[in-house]
Structures are given as structure tokens and as C-alpha cells.
């Protein structure tokens, strides 16, 4: 069975949102969602890194399957993705200092984010072709950004609320994430009614 591109895109963006349905990238989601100002660049940076990871994984997967080295797949993924991000960071620093300032501080944080490795592993497991993999990575990053933005908006608003003391902190963020996740369940089966 092959999925159409819109199915892949909206699936990863909404119905199977990376953060709210697949629990990928929770650490930055819980950590960086306090303010809208940081949420947006974080989302953009993660999306970018996910694309890089997806590209790397596609190439590597071809390599390890061709040479029957499946047992090296994980090591190859993690090492190459981490290096690629480092490389991108250096290139950015040199050629686009403005963009580096906007995204740079987030890049090292993202390198070993599970959403990034998740993209690589899932596209491999689902045997996506090149275009499908890129669509999947883009939608995954967009879904991550969407969840981050929604959460940041809500958290900024709750800064002004009289949230009970026992709920303050991570407990509140988790409950909010649960509620958002509940909302995203409304997208379950997206495209399945066809």
C-alpha cells in the first residue's frame, strides 16, 4: 500500500502530529514553548534539521541496504546526522551570520532531538521514496512547529492567569499538551474517508 503525498503531509502534520500523537521531540517542546519569540525560530530550525536528517537517512539507507550492513544503520544515522547538522551550523555561521544568529543557538539542542532521528527511522520503516521522505520530514517539522506555537500561545496567556500553585510548572505544560493532543484527535482518520 502506498500513501499519497497529501496523506503523508496531513498525517504527519495533524493526525499523527510528531509531538502530540507520536511523542517525538518532547524535550524541546516542554522546554522552549514558554515564549512565542523563541517558539517560532525553534520550530523553523527543527524543521530544517529534520529535512537535513531526512536527506541523510535516505542516502544512508540506500548505502546500508546495498551493502547489507543493516546492523550499522542506527550508528550511521546518528553519526552522520549529528555531523551534518554541525556542518550546516558551520556553513551558516560563515555565510549567513544573520540566519545563524536566529537559528544557531537552537541547532546544537536539536542535533540529538528524537524528532530528528524519528524522521529518519520512520521514513526507513515505512519505505518512503525520496519525495515521500521529504514530504514527511517537512510535515513533521511543520507539525512540530504548530504544536510549539499553540503551546507557546497558551502558556503566554496562562502567565497572566491565577494557575493554582500545585499545577505550576511542568505539570501544567503536560496537562496542556494532553488537551492539545485531545484536540488533535479530531483529525484522526484524516483522508481515510475517501
Amino acid at each position: 500500500m502506498s500513501e499519497t503525498l497529501p496523506q503523508i503531509f496531513f498525517g504527519a502534520l495533524l493526525a499523527n502530529n510528531f509531538v502530540l500523537a507520536m511523542f517525538l521531540g518532547l524535550c524541546p517542546f516542554l522546554g522552549v514553548s514558554g515564549r512565542l519569540d523563541t517558539a517560532l525560530p525553534m520550530g523553523a530550525a527543527t524543521t530544517f534539521v529534520m529535512l537535513v536528517a531526512s536527506l541523510c537517512a535516505f542516502g544512508l539507507n540506500w548505502l546500508v541496504t546495498t551493502f547489507h550492513l543493516e546492523f550499522l544503520r542506527l550508528i550511521a544515522y546518528i553519526v552522520v546526522i549529528a555531523s551534518a547538522v554541525q556542518l550546516v551550523e558551520m556553513v551558516l555561521k560563515k555565510h549567513s551570520p544573520a540566519l545563524f544568529r536566529a537559528l544557531g543557538i537552537y541547532l546544537p539542542l536539536i542535533t540529538t532531538n528524537c524528532a530528528v532521528l524519528g524522521v529518519a527511522l520512520f521514513q526507513t520503516a515505512r519505505e518512503y521514496d525520496f519525495i515521500q521522505a521529504l514530504t514527511f520530514a517537512t510535515a513533521g517539522g511543520a507539525g512540530f512547529s504548530l504544536a510549539l506555537l499553540l503551546m507557546a500561545g497558551l502558556r503566554e496567556r496562562l502567565q497572566l492567569a491565577n494557575v493554582p500553585n500545585v499545577v505550576q510548572g511542568t505539570a501544567l505544560v503536560l496537562m496542556l499538551a494532553g488537551l492539545l493532543s485531545l484536540i488533535f484527535m479530531g483529525f484522526a482518520g484524516l483522508g481515510a474517508g475517501e
Binding site: L150, G153, E156, F187, G193
Partner: peptide, 25 residues
């Protein structure tokens, strides 16, 4: 029209609620 659910009003309103702080801003 495209979802797996037959009715979407509830989720649409909740999504709208979640967007409200961003919209206000």
C-alpha cells in the same frame, strides 16, 4: 469532508480556542 470523524464542530472550536491567544496577538 476529509476526516475520519463524521462531525468536526467540537474539535474545530477547541482548535480555535487554542489559536485564540495567537489570533489576539
Amino acid at each position: 469532508y476529509f476526516g475520519g470523524l463524521t462531525e468536526g464542530v467540537m474539535y474545530a472550536i477547541l482548535f480555535g480556542n487554542a489559536l485564540a491567544p495567537l489570533i489576539d496577538r
